[in-house]
Design a binder for these strands. Structure first.
Lengths: 307, 307
DNA sequence: GCGCAGCGATGCTTTTTGGGCATAATGGCC
DNA sequence: GGCCATTATGCCCAAAAAGCATCGCTGCGC
């Protein structure tokens, strides 16, 4: 029963095969030459193949020795790589990070944070999942997502989750430039009474409709929904065409450009909060923590400049 | 100063990570559980990362542990593969075999031998080099080729080489079916006197011209060269067209088909010998030796059936 | 042609360390 | 709270690696 092969045998063999001289290789390895001789002999016995031709003036490699030298070098390299990968994973510098997000509310924060993150830890692959609010919540709870960047979950959507706010956006009304409300700097909530509304589809944007409900609950007569849109670009078009007004958070300021006017409401409703959502039970990976730091940094810079 | 990582650590870790239980893994490895515990702990210390979460009901893998499990499995697999490759090389079942050959004289032997060889040792890659006689000799001497299948080298071409005959082919004259010599079963050498010859180009076929010289040295008046061809197909065409006769060894019997008649000469000149040529100084690899055995087997079978 | 220098192998001893055994500590579960 | 399975610890032994001294070989130079 031969003693099993160990990495030591490979390290020793590579040293000898590179120095082509036991004595010099032993010096380099800081072991005595006889110890080295024996280990290499053991290796050859274990493999059952002569790797070296010994002579009084050094050693030469057999064909098998040349092949095994390459293999051994490769194995040793892969070994340190395996360890390095594992350490990098522990440091949050390697691996995959499944991140959920809702696109519209996060346009301010997510893109710059993502860019900075990728630059600082390029070996972490961020897997972005653009999902609806309830799907994000489910993904977090069942572990498919490690964290999500989104508006504060409401009601049962928030069960088992934590929310860390990054940014709060005032609720505004978006109107076409020619609309009577566009002339006001601040729009009293009551002025929305009876207005026609352009909204996102209820099915895909339940969070949006919860917000709508919250903002308009005291407005009488209640504005009526004129159009349902399946995305922000069509919503903007509809409002610009004069089909109605839209209730949007100030984060849309950059998205809608000059085509619409965005006016804060008074009295100001609770702002829309955007932040980091995680599962209470989920494990926090170092990469995820690093990502959060970038998010906070971006949000902080955004807050300073005002929004 | 931590003791270096060894394959033992990987073997032990994989066993524990698969069993998710130190005690059972220790039983499977046939070591005591404390020894196993210590080795795995040493490994974690060496890497500096917790790979396992210990609990009184077994162990679970951390994210780092999962990654390292895959890496360790892969490393162990590659290790046995490296050893296996080396052993296979020593057995002649792996590697590359550079073989030179002259195509025409070896059509009987090389293709079937090559086929059988590839089938018996598919992991050996035969690199075939179709070269002229002197290039083959040079390739063998400088080690680019391990062996060559060709006619017996003549003169200085054979210096430093060994020749092992596999097959001997009688020298014949090839004529068009309508040629007067076609009526003879055996052609007396003297009947070639004054004939027009179709030959291969001297530059590319020095061996052929040496053979020609040897066969025709006693024929007077010497046949005159009518056409020089750069390959066997054009040579066959020229002879069939009646431009002259050709001196060829009987190995061409299968190549020329029914378009030409091949008649042995009398008195029979020294036959053309085809065989294995190797460098005297060259090392004989097991794969090369195996290849030679296949060549001998094919030549033997060929000889039994007559040629 | 002889000695010398350089190299690897061998024999023996020392040191390290992996492994075994007994046992303690842990923590969930009934 | 005691019990059970499980892992960790302490101690000792044995195996094996490393060190040391020396031998044997071979090629080179004087």
């Amino acid at each position: 029963m031969a003693g099993s092969m160990e990495l030591r045998h490979l390290r020793y063999y590579v040293a000898v095969a590179e120095a082509l001289n036991f004595t010099k290789a032993a010096a380099r390895l800081r072991v005595a030459q006889p110890a080295l001789s024996r280990q290499v002999r053991d290796l050859e016995e274990e493999i059952g193949v002569d790797l070296l031709r010994r002579s009084p003036r050094g050693v030469t490699l057999t064909a098998e020795g040349k092949l095994f030298l390459e293999e051994a070098r490769d194995l040793l390299k892969r070994t340190v790589e395996a360890v390095e990968k594992t350490r990098a994973l522990a440091r949050g510098e390697y691996g995959e990070l499944p991140v959920g997000y809702s696109p519209s509310p996060t346009v301010d924060i997510l893109p710059p944070a993502l860019g900075a993150f990728q630059k600082s830890v390029p070996r972490v692959t961020v897997r972005l999942h653009d999902l609806a609010g309830n799907e994000l919540a489910d993904g977090l709870r069942n572990g498919v997502l490690e964290l999500a960047i989104m508006q504060r979950p409401t009601g049962s959507n928030g069960a088992g989750l934590t929310f860390e706010p990054l940014q709060a956006y005032p609720i505004c009304v978006a109107v076409a430039p020619g609309h009577p409300l566009a002339k006001l700097k601040v729009v009293p909530l009551a002025r929305l009474a009876g207005e026609k509304l352009v909204v996102f589809r209820r099915q895909e944007y339940t969070d949006y409709h919860a917000l709508l409900e919250r903002v308009l609950q005291e407005v009488h007569p209640r504005p009526v929904i004129a159009v349902e849109c399946d995305g922000s670009s069509s919503l903007i078009t509809e409002v610009a065409t004069g089909r109605g007004v839209a209730i949007l958070s100030a984060v849309f300021g950059k998205t809608i450009g000059p085509r619409l006017k965005l006016r804060p409401l008074t009295p100001a409703p609770e702002p829309q909060e955007v932040g980091i959502v995680r599962a209470l039970s989920g494990d926090v990976t170092p990469a995820g923590e690093k990502f959060c730091e970038h998010l906070r940094a971006v949000a902080g810079a955004l807050g300073e400049r005002g929004c």
